[in-house]
């Protein structure tokens, strides 16, 4: 009985601590906030049903991140098999510079901002960046999660820095253009 209660408390604490970040992470793969939220909620429900013992493990956060990542990838595969295909979602692609968010028509300003900022990053770089900055993983932890070397993480983070530099320099112009075109569309 006591154990039960502890598990519930741990579960709720984990949810309150990680839910929003997990959704933001999922949003870097998926097309909209509802999909991201559904994916993350599914992950949490499965965690409760199938791996409640993980809740007291120090690795729970990594487990969660990996689960969200896998869930998103499986959703993308499903979409792909149904003919809904966003080439740039594929995490293995290194070339694309748009996030799926850009395919949505009625982006809120907030969604557009995150889409634009993250959209500058190649997928793997984006994932590394989010693991470190959003989830607060150390380089070493991120390297372990992605099964790459710490040096690779350093490369990605340096690249992210460089791309953001270019992005923020462009953003003033883009904002101007958007405000200019808005009345037309």
């Amino acid at each position: 009985m006591h154990h039960e209660k502890t598990t519930e408390v741990l579960y709720k604490e984990l949810f309150e601590r990680e839910y929003a970040n997990a959704c933001r992470f999922a949003l870097s793969f998926l097309t909209d906030t509802h999909m991201a939220e559904d994916a993350v909620q599914d992950v949490f429900i499965k965690l409760w049903e199938q791996k409640p013992e993980m809740l007291s493990s120090p690795g729970i956060k990594y487990y969660l991140i990996t689960s969200v990542r896998n869930k998103c990838i499986s959703i993308l595969r499903e979409q792909k098999s149904k003919g809904v295909f966003y080439p740039e979602n594929a995490p293995e692609s290194h070339e694309e510079h748009l996030t799926p968010l850009h395919h949505k028509e009625n982006l809120s300003q907030q969604e557009r901002k995150i889409a634009d900022a993250l959209g500058q990053l190649p997928p793997v770089c984006r994932e590394v960046f989010l693991m470190v900055k959003l989830h607060g993983l150390s380089y070493k932890q991120a390297a372990e999660q992605l099964e790459v070397s710490v040096k690779t993480i350093e490369n990605h983070m340096g690249k992210a820095l460089r791309i953001f530099r270019d992005y923020t320099q462009k953003v003033a112009v883009v904002t101007y253009l958007i405000s200019f075109f808005k009345p037309v569309f």
């Binding site: 949810f15 309150e16 839910y19 970040n21 933001r24 949003l27 909620q41 907030q110 901002k113 995150i114």
Partner: peptide, 13 residues
């Protein structure tokens, strides 16, 4: 910007 996307954790909970 990234952390600025808000989610309603309480409702989701």
């Amino acid at each position: 910007l990234i952390k600025g996307v808000e989610f309603d954790t309480a409702a989701a909970w």
